[in-house]
Write a protein that binds this DNA or RNA. Sequence first.
DNA 1: ATGAAAGCGCTAACAT
DNA 2: ATGTTAGCGCTTTCAT
Lengths: 349, 349
Amino acid sequence: MARTTIHDIARELNTSSSTVSKALNDHPSISAATKELIKAAAQNLNYRQNRLASSLRSGRTNIIGILIPSSEIGFFGGVVHGIEKIARSNGYNILLFQSSDTGEYEVEGVETLLQTSVDGIIASIAKDTPTLDHFFDVKKRKVPLILFDRVKDELNSPSVVVDDYKGAFMATEHLIQQGYTNIAHISGPQHIKIFNDRLCGYVDALKMNNLPVNDDLIQYGRNSIESGRFSAERLLGRNKDMDAIFAVEDFTALGALQYLKQNGIKMPEKIGMIGFGNESFSPYVTPSLSTIDQQPARMGEEAFNLFLEAMAKKTAGNNGSAVEEVEEEPKKIVLEPVLIVRESSVKNG
Amino acid sequence: MARTTIHDIARELNTSSSTVSKALNDHPSISAATKELIKAAAQNLNYRQNRLASSLRSGRTNIIGILIPSSEIGFFGGVVHGIEKIARSNGYNILLFQSSDTGEYEVEGVETLLQTSVDGIIASIAKDTPTLDHFFDVKKRKVPLILFDRVKDELNSPSVVVDDYKGAFMATEHLIQQGYTNIAHISGPQHIKIFNDRLCGYVDALKMNNLPVNDDLIQYGRNSIESGRFSAERLLGRNKDMDAIFAVEDFTALGALQYLKQNGIKMPEKIGMIGFGNESFSPYVTPSLSTIDQQPARMGEEAFNLFLEAMAKKTAGNNGSAVEEVEEEPKKIVLEPVLIVRESSVKNG
DNA sequence: ATGAAAGCGCTAACAT
DNA sequence: ATGTTAGCGCTTTCAT
């Protein structure tokens, strides 16, 4: 009835539990014949390793903790998918925690992950985290910490983000190449870095292509569909010759798109449109929405790879050599944004 | 440098580690004063419980394993969100495994979860699982197994699904109430239970409302956007007076919607439309798509509650009373589908 | 190549 | 109310 242990196997074969343990772990000092014997017996007795005991003894769990705002959000679901897939193929499992963008839950999550002795933590930081103490705690414990998307430079951790500036630049330049010349931008709150980055990308793309930057063509919204609708109205009101909009997020673009459609303005003929984020609805609106993809699954993979590197470094550091503990510059991966061209931005479909 | 243990605390306070353990776990036999003292010391020494050791000893991990096809799929992301949220508030954590709808990965996932001694498993079964042996293994180990959405009656496990028949019935009846009378249905492969259930719901709603069931108005598709487009064309070709479509999935509805739009057929005036599944794009297509919501987060919560019940039953069973071990009928929760009315089905908006 | 023995950090039965 | 003790199942050093 009770679970089979290595002792049961040892008894069965008149050998010792340490031999069984070694055989099962393919230790080189055990003969091939013994290994075969032991593995067969294990199979017969329906043995299954107790990972708790193994981890307690060895000090590693092969579990990595993931901390995200919510798996309900498409982007994070995609990242988790990416991490889980590559983690599994490397013998790691995923312990998932959602912060709901709350600092309180985030602290609790980090606490639990540390208690569980996860081998590392991959996190995207909650919006309203008042302090970063809990993350410094992780570093203090020498548990590898990798950040993605919502990163904080103060933590001095390896990270992976998408190049927002470049994505915005690509989006804007794409519109220019399609023949649009009076291109507006609906931005977001400027204290959030990514929105400012995207604004800069927009501005630089115009400059680089010798187009004037017109303040009237820039509208600061609040990142909602409603705000997109409103912003489109305002932009159109003061710019009779506006012929394209680059919106800071697909949701904003969607609102603008709805407004233009309601007012009988043809897209992409009269006004071109491109968003940012490649939301799941974007291919299916009318006209289908051109956008910038942030490669969520890829981001997850890269984050896991950074974790593996950190682990390797940690192991190497433990070899007892008396090298000075120099905190080196952490690796920061910047993913290429991907331009997705659909109907809303192609004048001559 | 090394982690603080209860022994460190005991040494610090000249007491024993068992007292410390009890105090930290709020055991009633420890005086309030001692508890306070010990908790303060723990705080000072930055003590953090080692869950591995605790779990190894106590036999429970407070971790539940989740097995889903993919967190990239919106529905499953929502379910995971629901489970994680309620699990956390009950002191449980989530170990996540994705099968990618592959039997092989699913087997591997179950294996890992059992090795990790999870307290229970909540799973949605992969499409191409050739055998259910791995799940029977779970039951053999007396690990509570809860299924959702993709369930198998043979496993005789508690489960939670949405009432597909009723959802289809509601969708069809809604169209009838809106004044549509020649209502078509785009169905899916009939060997998949949910699609057949939905077909039955459609048929019965017509009958119940004294409308004729016309075979020409039923088209069997393959559950894709493309198939929806094609099906709409076929239906329209042989039914000049068709005035509404109930599609088996939102994706199918979307294809049909695209076809009708391209052919200048006004919705909802000329033809009404409703889908099933409440996909994330559905509110944003034109016209916005009426549909049936499957309550993913709610489904996750209910699944977790079933797990708690199973745990309670298991604990109660262990009290040594000599009751006959009768396998009782497992509880099967059937969630109410929710009708979401949007533009595509409201004639007199 | 194999085995003996110690111990990872904790809990819980049993003394006191 | 507190302390002693044993041991969960495994890995790993050291001896043989």
